[in-house]
Amino acid sequence: MSSEWIPSLVHFFGMMLLVASFGIIAAPQIMASVRAYAVHSFLLAVITVLVALAGHVEHLLISAALTVVLKTVVIPRVFSKMIHRLGVRREVESYANVPFLLLISVLLLFVSFYVTSGLRGLEPVFSKEFVSIAIFTVFFGMLVMISVKKAMTQVLGLLLIENGLFLLGITMTFGMPLLVELGISFDVLVAVFIMGIFMLKIRGAFEGIDIDDLTELKG
């Protein structure tokens, strides 16, 4: 690959990463949201590879491989299993309608760029727009957690936040040490399993995983 191509490719995948995160909200069904998350993680892995190639940081390749295996294969599998077990295949229910959420997300992107462009002393080792994309991903994950009703999608929001932090890590410092990376990855996996069990329990108690039901718990 010529050196001219790499920045363009990175920009391109950065954009696609944004589109994939938007897809999580715009998706009509929960499974489609999960697929969008898988795509998001895959793109993240691709960007990691590009960063590794550009900066000659080989250990990032391992992180990338881990991302692919864990986040694009294992976690979506777990999710689809869970969706089948729980029998939730309906539309993603949220407190606001989709166009509104999408526009809010664009504004969030604007805000995260505006915020990061004003920061001084921020010296990313890689393309500077990724800092704002990473921050945006974190914000966006929070937005997902705030706006949707189903516990399943809330877990996705949490995973998105984790993706955002990972992205921030690789763009600011060429990634965290491999050991930390490994630790986080398995933490995420465990978190997903725990939440799956949790959701099964919630459903057992309320016959549904609508988080609004939790309001019944208060005295």
Binding site: P7, H11, M15, F22, N97, P99, L102, E129
Partner: peptide
């Protein structure tokens, strides 16, 4: 359908915002 068209709007807006973030002509 408005959701579908909103996707078009957001894509166009993202395309613009992306150019802004990277800088025109970068």
């Amino acid at each position: 359908v408005p959701d579908f068209l909103a996707v078009a709007f957001v894509l166009a807006l993202l395309s613009f915002l992306g150019q802004l973030m990277v800088g025109r002509g970068a």
